[in-house]
């Protein structure tokens, strides 16, 4: 199918309404990209939280084990 514009300038200008059309499409793109980045960041940061908690748990468990061994020896 053929489009309506003959040149890139004509396409971008859209008569007198280029600013309005591109502002709408641009803002929509911006909002959705922001949501995408935000939700992705939420998931990532939650995962690293869980991971760091698991690590500290491991450390605590091993140090508790070590302490217990000492007590046993004494």
């Amino acid at each position: 199918m053929n489009g309506w514009a003959n040149s890139l300038q004509e396409f971008l200008a859209m008569g007198k309404h280029g600013d309005y059309v591109w502002a709408s499409y641009g803002m929509t793109l911006l909002v959705f990209v922001l949501l995408f980045v935000w939700f992705r960041y939420m998931l990532k940061s939650l995962r690293s939280q869980v991971q760091s908690r698991l690590q500290t748990d491991d450390q605590e468990a091993s140090s508790a084990k070590a302490r217990k061994l000492k007590v046993d020896k004494a």
Binding site: M1, G3, W4, A5, F11, M14, G15, K16, H17, G18, Y20, V21, S24, Y25, T28
Partner: peptide, 24 residues
């Protein structure tokens, strides 16, 4: 919405905003 569809005889190219406005 940006290339194939024609402009409106009254609203001109600003009718293309409809393709975003109505869905959202």
């Amino acid at each position: 919405s940006l290339w194939v569809s024609p402009q409106d005889y009254q609203q001109g190219h600003s009718v293309r905003i409809m393709y975003i406005h109505v869905p959202v």
